[in-house]
Write a protein that binds this DNA or RNA. Structure first.
Length: 602
DNA sequence: GCCGTTTTCGGCCCGACTGTTTTCAGTCG
C-alpha cells in the first residue's frame, strides 16, 4: 500500500470509553499487540520491512512518556511519532477503541497464537517455527519435546540430529531469551569473568558492555568485549571457567555460554585498533545502534563493529569518542543509548547534563533497628557520612507494618528525642526526623496528624493491598498525597523484580498530582526495587516533579546502592536540579519549610 | 509499513556462527 505522509490525527469524534473490566489499554498493551503481529507476520514469512515497522512502532510506543489512549480519548491529536504512519496510527486507534486489531485476529485465525511462544526457545526463529507447525503440527513447547523425543524433527529439511537434540534440551530447560536479573546481582558474576579473561596471556583488556554497561535495572545476559591480538585463542581458554555450565557457541571471534546461575554470557574478541567501534556496537542498545547506523547512512558512511567507513576507508574505530565524532555527534553516555531521542538531542547540542553520584548531598529514606533495620541511629549516620552525605532522614516503618516492627506514637516520639540528642553531637552530618508511614487501604496515613506534623518530612508508602483495581489504587495514593504533611511517595510502583508486578496504577495521574501538590516521587535504589522506572523518571521530569533518589537503607552497607539509583536517574535523563536530595541541607530545609511551614524545627 | 536535502519509488543496519549443506539459510546479538 502507498500512503501520503500526514501527521497522526485523533479521531474526529471523541472515542467511546475504554473497554470495561480489568483490561487497560495503555501503551504497553498496544505495543504487545504490535509485537505479536510482528511475530505472526514473521512466521508467515511476510515482507521483513513490514515486520520491522511493527516492531519499531511497538518500541516507539513503549518509549513514550505520555499515554496514547488517554490523549486520544480527550480528543487531542497525537504528535507525529517516528515510525508510525497513517496505517499504524489507524491500528492504534482501533486497538484503543476495541482492545484488538483485525489484522491480529486474521493472523490468529491462520496461525495458532501459541507459535509466538515457541519463538522464545533458543535456536528457534520464525522459519523453523513455521516448518515445525506446517510439517508436524507443532504448536507448543510440550509438542516440540515429544516430537524431538520421538526423533521426528531430525528428518525435516534444514534440521538434523544435532538441532533436534539442541531444541529438546532448550525446550526442557526453558532456555529462553527473556530471563532478566537485577543489575546488582549480575555485576559480581560479570566482574569474576572479566578478571578471569584479563589474566589470560595476550588479553589486553576485558570490558563489560551491553545492558550492564548501560546500567539497566535488569540484565538479560552479560556481554564482555575482549581486546586481544588475532593470534590469541581467547575463547578456548574462556570456556574452561568453572562458572560455565554449557557452551552454546564458540568461534575465534565470539563465544556464548550459559553460567551455572542460568545467565548467558556473550564474549566478543576484537583487535586493539577497533576497540572503540566494537565497544559502541557491543554496548548497544540495538535500537541505538540502528539509529546511529541510519545517521551514518545519511552521511554516506557505513558503521559496523569495525569502524566508521567511507567506501573502504576507515575514518574512525579506536575510541568511542572518535566513532561518534565521525558521525558528527558528541560522545553519548551509555545510560542514554536507548534510542529515546538521544541522537537528536546530541545533534542539536541538547544532551542533558546528567546527575552524578557525587551530586547527592543526602538520603531521605533509611531505617534503623527501631523497626526492621540492622543498625543504630548513630551507625547509620556515620555510614551515610562515610558515603559522602551531609544529611540523612531516618524513616522507620509505622505501626501498621507489624512484620517490620513499625513504630507507634510513643516510639516515634522517643526516636525524635534521640535524633535531637544525637544531632547535637554529630559533626558534618545531620539526621532529619521522618517516618515511612503506611498508606492504608483507604488512603489515610497510619499515624495522626499532630505526630506527623512534628517531623521534618513524611515518606508515604504502600505495603499492603497490592491487588486493588486501577481506580482504587490510584484514588488511594491521590488521597494520601492530599495529606498536608505528605512529602515523598516512596517506591511508587511497589514492584519487586521477578517477584511482584508493579501496582495497577494510573501513574501519569499520580505524577500530575505530585506536580500540583509539590510532592516528590522516590526513585528507590534498592536493587530488587529500582522504582520508579527510567522512563517514568523522564516523564516526571517533563511534568516538573522533583525526584528523591533514596537508598531505603536497612543497614550501613546499603548506602552503596545509591549508585544504582543514580544510574537509573541518569537513564531517566535526570539532571542535578531534578533531584531534591542534591540540595544542600540549608536549601532542603528551606524547601521543607516552604512545603509545610509549621513543621521544620531545625 | 515507513520514509524523503536522491520525496510517490525504492530503499530499509550489519556481521558471526551453526548446522546442514556442498554454497547457504537461519538465528542471534
Amino acid at each position: 500500500m502507498k500512503h501520503t505522509v500526514v501527521p497522526l490525527q485523533a479521531p474526529s469524534a471523541v472515542l467511546p470509553p475504554l473497554p470495561s473490566g480489568s483490561q487497560v489499554i495503555d501503551n504497553d498493551h498496544i505495543a504487545a499487540v504490535f509485537d505479536e503481529v510482528a511475530d505472526l507476520l514473521d512466521i508467515e514469512d511476510a515482507n521483513p520491512f513490514r515486520i520491522r515497522a511493527y516492531r519499531n512502532a511497538a518500541r516507539t510506543l513503549r518509549a513514550l512518556t505520555f499515554d496514547v489512549a488517554k490523549t486520544l480519548s480527550r480528543g487531542e491529536a497525537l504528535p507525529k511519532l517516528t515510525g508510525i504512519g497513517v496505517d499504524l496510527a489507524g491500528k492504534i486507534n482501533e486497538i484503543v477503541t476495541t482492545g484488538d486489531c483485525s489484522l491480529r485476529q486474521r493472523l490468529r485465525s491462520t496461525l495458532p497464537p501459541g507459535l509466538v511462544g515457541l519463538l522464545s526457545i533458543a535456536g528457534l526463529g520464525p522459519r523453523r517455527v513455521k516448518n515445525l507447525y506446517h510439517d508436524l503440527g507443532i504448536e507448543t513447547a510440550q509438542q516440540l519435546c515429544l516430537a524431538a523425543q520421538q526423533g521426528r524433527i531430525r528428518h525435516l529439511p534444514g534440521f538434523g540430529e544435532r538441532m533436534e537434540a539442541r531444541l529438546l534440551s532448550a525446550a526442557q530447560k526453558g532456555i529462553g531469551k527473556d530471563r532478566r536479573l537485577p543489575l546488582a546481582l549480575v555485576e559480581p558474576m560479570a566482574r569474576r569473568l572479566t578478571e578471569y579473561l584479563q589474566q589470560i596471556p595476550g588479553v589486553e583488556q576485558a570490558t563489560t558492555a551491553g545492558s550492564l554497561r548501560r546500567m539497566r535495572d535488569t540484565v538479560g545476559d552479560i556481554d564482555i568485549l575482549v581486546v586481544a591480538a588475532p593470534s590469541v585463542d581467547v575463547t578456548t581458554q574462556f570456556i574452561s571457567h568453572p562458572d560455565i555450565s554449557t557452551v552454546l557457541v564458540k568461534g575465534h571471534a565470539r563465544a556464548s555460554v550459559m553460567l551455572n546461575s542460568g545467565m548467558q554470557v556473550d564474549v566478543r574478541i576484537v583487535e586493539p585498533a577497533v576497540y572503540g567501534a566494537a565497544l559502541v556496537y557491543f554496548t548497544g542498545s540495538k535500537a541505538h545502534n540502528i539509529a546511529i547506523r541510519q545517521r551514518a547512512q545519511k552521511l554516506g558512511l557505513k558503521l559496523n563493529e569495525y569502524g566508521v567507513f567511507r567506501a573502504k576507508n576507515r575514518l574512525a574505530s579506536t575510541t568511542e569518542v572518535s566513532v561518534y565524532q565521525a558521525l558528527g555527534l558528541p560522545w553519548i553516555t551509555p545510560e542514554l543509548r536507548e534510542d529515546r531521542g538521544e541522537v537528536a538531542a546530541a545533534l542539536a547540542g541538547h544532551l542533558p547534563g546528567l546527575i552524578e553520584l557525587t551530586d547527592l548531598k543526602g538520603d531521605l529514606h533509611a531505617h534503623t533497628h527501631a523497626s526492621d533495620g540492622g543498625n543504630s541511629l548513630e551507625e547509620m549516620a556515620l555510614a551515610a557520612q562515610g558515603a559522602g552525605l551531609e544529611y540523612l532522614a531516618i524513616t522507620d516503618h509505622s505501626q501498621s507494618l507489624r512484620v517490620a516492627h513499625g513504630l507507634g506514637v510513643e516510639q516515634l516520639l522517643k526516636q525524635i528525642d534521640q535524633i535531637d540528642a544525637l544531632n547535637s553531637r554529630l559533626q558534618g552530618m545531620t539526621l532529619l526526623k521522618g517516618i515511612e508511614v503506611d498508606i492504608l487501604e483507604d488512603g489515610n496515613l497510619d499515624l495522626p496528624d499532630d505526630i506527623l506534623g512534628r517531623l521534618d518530612l513524611v515518606v508515604g508508602a504502600v505495603h499492603s493491598h497490592f491487588g486493588l483495581t486501577l481506580r482504587q489504587q490510584t484514588q488511594r495514593l491521590l488521597r494520601a498525597m492530599d495529606h498536608r504533611y505528605f512529602t515523598i511517595l516512596a517506591h511508587p510502583l511497589c514492584r519487586l523484580i521477578n517477584e511482584r508486578d508493579p501496582l495497577n496504577l494510573d501513574l501519569p495521574a499520580i505524577i500530575k498530582a505530585a506536580a500540583q501538590r509539590g510532592c516528590c516521587l522516590e526513585l528507590n535504589a534498592q536493587p530488587p526495587r529500582m522504582d520508579l522506572f527510567d522512563l517514568q523518571c523522564q516523564y516526571a521530569k517533563d511534568e516538573g516533579v522533583l525526584i528523591s533518589v533514596n537508598s531505603d537503607a536497612h543497614r550501613t552497607a546499603d548506602f552503596a546502592n545509591l549508585r544504582y539509583g543514580v544510574a537509573q536517574a541518569r537513564r531517566g535523563w535526570l539532571e542535578k536540579h531534578n533531584v531534591i536530595n542534591t540540595r544542600s541541607l540549608t536549601e532542603l530545609k528551606a524547601w521543607l519549610v516552604i512545603k509545610s511551614p509549621t513543621t521544620f524545627r531545625g
